[in-house]
Amino acid sequence: MADVLNMVFRTFMSQTGLRKQPPVSPPPPAAGSSLLLGDRSLSRSVLLLAAVTAASELGMRVMFFTQTQIQSLPVSLQRCFPNLSPESLKKIKFSYPRTLDELLQQVASLHESTNMPPTPPSLIIVDRLEGFLCGAGGSSSSHSGSHPAELSSAAHLSALLCDTAAFLTQVLEQRGSSSGPCRLIASFLSEADTGRASRDPSGADPILSVLDRYFQVRCTLDRDEGYEATAAGVQEVWHIYLSGRGMAEASFAKDSEDKPGVAQEWQLFVFPDGLMEFKLV
């Protein structure tokens, strides 16, 4: 389910881990939607790695929606792909909707022929869902409300993204494209992770519960503040956990069809110069 993310983690693996692993090969294609949870700037770097890896290594067309301009590409990309061709970067289309309404309109119109190049996108990325959902539904409060209108906005956006990915998968199949199915990756920072108290007495973010209905895989970035981070001599150590019903389906498929499995946990080392390295746990 999280095949593109796993491809990213394997492409940018640490050299010590790489020696033990077979060379990176394209993942088995799998339709699916992944939600990246955690630190905003790290999530964006992972999304950019995903976009460039999908475009350059897998030849996929990518739609990248974000509210803020991309100033530079992560250092890891420049190191790992020193000869990155402009042609592969052209496969990524960046779009900058300012509001939820603009994002909904842009995603909803992806099926129109004017927006559909000869090969439609097979990866849709949305950076910082919370930025679009903040105050959605007519509420002026912060994003993590349990007001039905806010939840409905989160559900509408998620459902539209999933339905669009399903439609584009169908188009890619009809056109005999090898880059299908169309995958979806979005990032979201839950209010619980920003340190502000949730209004839900159970402590769960109601918006996140809604997103979980639509996204099959959760990819959680969790910072390791412990001893290992200091000992490794790096700036930051993060744990990456893959979970959700998509993972359960993937492991079921693995058992039944002997497909390569999808790892459940990774470590991410961020070095002082910004270099990111992943390590399989």
Partner: peptide, 9 residues
């Protein structure tokens, strides 16, 4: 309502 997933306004 969408074809592939549950949503209704």
């Amino acid at each position: 309502c969408f074809l592939s997933c549950h949503y209704c306004p």
